[in-house]
């Protein structure tokens, strides 16, 4: 396998009850090494999509292929879960053991890795998320952001090809969010892990390589952050915010300015505004 699609859904439909489809005919392909952000408001089906990627749920219609394995194939269940790690929203409810390093070891113990190798991989994973000094602490003493980094370490230790994070920062304070986001970006940069980040924070999605917006069970926008966030009206209609900078540019353009609607960062915006101001004077 080279730079191909590692997660690939074909005409995927999912419903918890008959007649009420949460996801409708979804075709999403995610490439190896890509950092994808999945955006959508509550109940849009984005978390459901995440759970379909590691066979916690299986499609009611259509198919979901992960690393060439069909998630409906029960024999492949643990191969799939080993390759697609998942981190959830509530840091408290995903830590199993009462000591940090033992929790990080949990997944490896489950898959029957020899003890010496577990030790090595646990230490490496804890160092990667910057929590090595806390290895013999009780998770109860840690902050939310630290707990979430422990949860990420538990997944890194399993050396998956792909990590799906389901709103990992929703319950954190700003400092914790920053730490966790830094850790998430490191996953791709240092380990080449494919990251799927489910979020409703625009500033997190801006950092992704690709943004997919899901609304009412269907992807409505798909592209680079610049492309997606330039559709301010569509985003607003689905109840989503846009990054502040994008909104400013959008409003100015409505008053007759001609700014690039794909501006995303504050620096770009400042430069563009400075340019406009200078032009206006001359």
């Amino acid at each position: 396998m080279s730079a191909e699609n590692i997660i690939s859904s074909k005409n995927l439909c999912f419903s918890y009850e008959q007649g009420k489809e949460i996801l409708k005919e979804i075709n999403i392909d995610i490439k190896r090494g890509e950092f994808t952000a999945l955006l959508g408001h509550n109940g849009s089906g984005k978390s459901t999509f995440a759970r379909l990627t590691n066979a916690i749920l299986v499609p009611t219609k259509g198919s979901m292929n992960v690393f060439g394995m069909d998630t409906s194939d029960e024999g492949k269940l643990y191969d799939i879960r080993q390759n697609v790690g998942m981190v959830f929203q509530n840091p408290d409810n995903q830590i199993v053991a009462a000591v940090v390093e033992e929790d990080v070891a949990f997944g490896l113990e489950n898959t029957g890795v020899p003890p010496a190798e577990i030790r090595e991989r646990v230490d490496e994973a804890l160092k990667a998320v910057g929590m090595y000094e806390y290895r013999d602490h009780s998770p109860g003493m840690l902050s939310g952001g630290q707990k979430q980094r422990i949860a990420i370490a538990g997944i890194i230790a399993m050396r998956p090809e792909c990590i799906v994070l389901d709103e990992p920062t929703a319950m954190l304070d700003p400092a914790g969010r920053k730490d966790v986001m830094r850790t998430i970006r490191m996953l791709g940069e240092r380990y080449g892990i494919t990251v799927v980040l489910i979020t409703h924070y625009m500033d997190e999605a801006v950092r992704a390589d690709r943004v997919i917006v899901i609304d009412e069970g269907k992807p409505i926008l798909d592209g680079t952050p610049k492309q997606v966030f330039s559709h301010v009206d569509i985003l607003k209609k689905t109840g989503l915010d846009v990054p502040q900078v994008t909104e400013l540019v959008h409003k100015l353009n409505r008053y007759g300015f001609d700014l690039d609607p794909q501006i995303l960062t504050e620096e770009e915006c400042a430069a563009a505004l400075a340019f406009v101001l200078k032009e206006g004077k001359s």
Partner: peptide, 27 residues
């Protein structure tokens, strides 16, 4: 109960499948 449900899900995602074939880091 809600915590239990979420924890069970997280454990499943980390390949938990009972005691069989399990190893331990600390021997």
């Amino acid at each position: 109960f809600r915590r239990a449900e979420e924890l069970a899900l997280a454990m499943e995602c980390r390949c938990y499948r009972g005691g069989e074939g399990r190893t331990r880091m600390k021997q």
